[in-house]
Each structure stands twice: as structure tokens, then as C-alpha cells.
Design a protein around this nucleic acid. Structure first.
Lengths: 252, 252
DNA sequence: CCATCAAAAGCGTGATCTCACTTAAATTTC
DNA sequence: GAAATTTAAGTGAGATCACGCTTTTGATGG
């Protein structure tokens, strides 16, 4: 059935080019979704600096695919607010948040994550509690040994594990979208905090106090206390992020 | 290296195709963004039914462009939750919300739009108040004469004008994303409500009562009352949407 | 040595084509 | 005539190329 020669064409067409390569794309997932997931994770983990420019062809080259899936992935990230088009050439880059946007995100996070926490606390069983405890401990030790990557990863794990228990996919995606926006700044803020924490180890205690209070509220099953702890943590973090933002723009 | 004739190929290639046409794409906006805006507006206005399938080539043909920008636009909409990929062929279609998703969206709306209202009320001046009043009146008359399009449009205008006054772009985009998801259902719910309103004109009064209370709170500058009115409206609407959803799935 | 201008490289955008796959229709077969 | 199979049409995914634009670079003139 598959007349490979395409009889509708004259006859001898060289046409040697198409040669589509299936590549290493595994498991039915589209290349576009792989690129999207990769870049999204990189953004949320702060592997890109605010203001860094992302090139279609560079990404396509690194990920060993063509420009088409990359462009779709970048466009999705642009829609998510994780990237922004800049200049007349529409070069895509990591957004540099303004202070107003930071406040905007903070308040949305307070509402959404606070609500998610109250919904989650009813559904957290001993198994989830153990995993959350694990993430908390890892985050704690990461802060002690000054491992920024480990801290960021487990900070996200700690929060997302709680919210995931709420079993609200749409709410979860909204929260993820907000973390995506603050990811690049978060790394800078934490890196600075870690740097000063070497000299003054008590600097992380503010952040740790919030997380500890959240953990305690989880154990007690107190939704209001948990919500307050989450809100406090978000406000603290927003304050640090604001400092990092102002430091960054003074450099630029 | 620019050998336009591609000397690597035999020689006389007709190759008459490139012929890129600038088309009617006006004002520096990319074709992709035009397609996105068009389809997004169509979705939020309920011009597509839940479950309706959207074809790349059909859209490209109707909008007189190629498939590339259309696919990017549809992918963005998929990321927004306005479309979903279905089946092994990843055919894109308008999502059919589950009841859990409806509750999810309702609660997020209560939090986000309630918060937006409290932030907006401090910043609403006489000029905005006049525009909002206008939208309210248009919505009211639309309900009386049974014009579904007019009602939907001004319902969105009424709400968005309030939220826009909060001057929180990110919050606004999140709220828009939620309306995008419920848009297709909203039309069905309103159409049903209009149909029965012809027989029993007092059916719209619930919805109108919420909007009236919101307007009154705006005039009084009472943020708590406004928030309560918004929350009440959202809850009412979610109830109607749930009925429309159950009716729809009984047909399917 | 610096300013100026032209060439080149790089950017995103969009069109076109092939591919793999699914689904609908038509044909054949029992 | 009904059922199974083959065929045709339609789908999204991905690669490649041309285009217009901006930025960088290199050479030339001052």
C-alpha cells in the first residue's frame, strides 16, 4: 500500500533529503514535550539566569532535534511566563521580574498555596507524611552543607508534596506556573543566603522556622496553622527574592 | 554559501514554491499570535462546543495561513488548558471538564477573583465606575432580550473591568486562564438559562442579584462585601455549569 | 587610534513537504 | 447480504529551507 516511489511524480526523483530521523525520542512522547519538560525543569531549578537569552538553534543543537519542536516548547514557556520575547527580533530570554510582578506573584502564591495547604491537610496519610519528612530533612542538611542545588530541589519537593496531596490538578498547575516564574531568581537568592550562611549559620533559620512550623502543623492536623506557616514562608521568600532582584539590577 | 539555486541538485528544478506571502498580517504582530488570540477569544466566548475537535489544516485554511503558526497557537492553548490532545493521533479538541475539575476551577476562582476584587476596589475611579456600570446595564438588557452572545460578552467585561483595576497583570492572566477553561461550558449554561428565562423570567435573578450586590459594594467602597458578592456569583455560576455538564454528558 | 560603514553571521518566522498513524470508505470475500 | 480486508483520506509531528530583520564583525577612511 505504501508506494514508496510516489507514482504520482514523474519517475526518477532524486529527492534524497527528507530522511527523517526518529532520534532518541523514547516512549511515544513527542520531541516538543521533551524539550518543554527539559527547559521548564531547568527554569524552575534556576539553571538559567534572569535576562539570559535562549536561542532556538542552540537549544535544538544541544537537544539534538530540529528547530520546530523547540520553537513550540519555547512558545509554551513564553505563554507560561517562563520566557519573554525581547526586542524587535523577538529574541526569547528569561524574564527579569519587576518589583510589582514580584508582589503580584507573592500575593497569588499566598492565596493559592495557602488554600492548597488547607485542602491537602485532610488527605495526608502516614506514607505521604514520611516522604514530606524526608524532603524536609534533606532540605535541612542541604542548608547546613551549603548545597544550593540540593536545597532548591528539596524545597520544591517539600512544598509540592504537600500541595499534591490536595489532589487538585488545575490548582497544582497554577502553582507550578508561579514557581516557574520565580525559579531563576530563587537560585540567586538562595545562593546569596548560603554564602552568608557560611559566616552566619543562623541566617537560614528564618526559612527553616517557617518550614518547621509547617511540618508541626501537618503533624497536628491544624489547617489554619499550616496555612499561616505557608503564608509566612512565602512572604519571607518574597522578601529575599526582592533583595536578590535589587542586587541584580544594581549590577546590570 | 547562499547559493539560491542549490547547485547540489541536478539542475533545472522548477522549485516554484517558496513564494512566501506576507498575507493580511497587520501591524508587526506575528501570525501565530493572531491565530492564538482569535482562537482564545473564540474559546472564551464559547464558540466551540466541549468535545469539538480542532484540526490544524482546517484552522489554517479558515485563517488563511499555514499550519506552522496554527500548531504553535494550538499548543499554547493546550498548555493553557483550553484544548487537550486526545487519542493516539493527538487530535486536539475542546476539553470536556469533569466535575472534579469544575470544583477545582471554582475554588481557584473564589480565591483569585475574590482577592482581585479586594485589590481593585481601592483603585476604581468614577471613570472606571461608569464603564463598569455600562457593562452591567448591557448585561442586564441582554438577559432580558435573551441575547446569549451579548450576555456572555458583557458578563466577561463586567468582571474583567473590575479585576483590571487591581493592576496585577499576572493575576489577571491567571484569571483569564480560568475563564478560558469554563468558556465553552458557560455558553451552554447561559443558553439553557436564557431558554427557560423566556418562560420564567425570574431565573436570571440569582445571577443578577450577585452582580447587583457587587455593583452596590463597588459604589460603597466595601471590599469585604464585594468579595462576598463575587464569591457568591462564582459559586452560583459553578452550580449552573455543573448542571450543564451533567446534561451534556447524559446526551453523550 | 577611533569612527564609520559594509559584509557576514545569527535571530525568529513562516511555508512546504514527508512521515507515521488513525479513521472512514470502498472493495472483496465468504 | 454480511463480514472482513484493503484502500483512501485525514490527522499531527518533525525537518528543512527561504525570508526579513538585528547584531556583530571586519575593513576602510579619517
Amino acid at each position: 500500500m505504501k508506494d514508496v516511489q510516489h507514482d504520482s511524480w514523474p519517475r526518477q526523483r532524486p529527492r534524497q533529503r527528507p530522511r527523517q530521523r526518529p532520534l532518541e525520542l523514547q516512549e511515544g512522547a513527542t520531541a516538543q514535550s521533551l524539550v518543554y519538560a527539559t527547559l521548564r525543569h531547568a527554569l524552575i531549578s534556576g539553571y538559567f539566569r534572569p535576562g539570559e537569552e535562549i536561542s532556538l538553534r542552540k537549544v535544538a543543537s544541544v537537544l539534538e532535534t530540529s528547530v520546530t519542536p523547540v520553537r513550540e516548547a519555547l512558545r509554551r514557556l513564553e505563554g507560561d511566563g517562563g520566557l519573554e520575547a525581547f526586542g524587535g527580533n523577538r529574541v526569547l530570554r528569561v524574564p527579569i521580574l519587576t518589583n510589582a510582578e514580584l508582589i503580584d506573584i507573592r500575593d497569588i502564591r499566598v492565596n493559592l498555596e495557602g488554600f492548597a495547604a488547607t485542602q491537602a491537610i485532610k488527605r495526608i496519610g502516614p506514607a505521604q507524611m514520611r516522604v514530606i519528612n524526608n524532603a524536609f530533612n534533606l532540605m535541612h542538611t542541604a542548608a547546613e552543607i551549603g548545597d544550593v542545588d540540593m536545597y532548591l530541589e528539596n524545597n520544591w519537593r517539600f512544598h509540592s508534596l504537600i500541595y499534591r496531596a490536595a489532589d487538585r490538578p488545575i490548582l497544582m498547575s497554577q502553582i507550578k506556573g508561579l514557581w516557574l516564574r520565580v525559579g531563576p531568581l530563587m537560585r540567586i537568592a538562595v545562593a546569596v543566603a548560603v554564602a552568608v550562611a557560611v559566616a552566619a549559620p543562623m541566617h537560614f533559620d528564618q526559612s527553616m522556622a517557617s518550614h518547621c512550623a509547617a511540618l508541626q502543623s501537618l503533624r497536628n492536623g491544624d489547617p489554619d496553622a499550616l496555612q499561616q506557616a505557608i503564608i509566612h514562608d512565602i512572604s519571607e521568600a518574597a522578601s529575599d527574592l526582592g533583595k536578590a532582584l535589587r542586587n541584580g539590577e544594581s549590577q546590570t
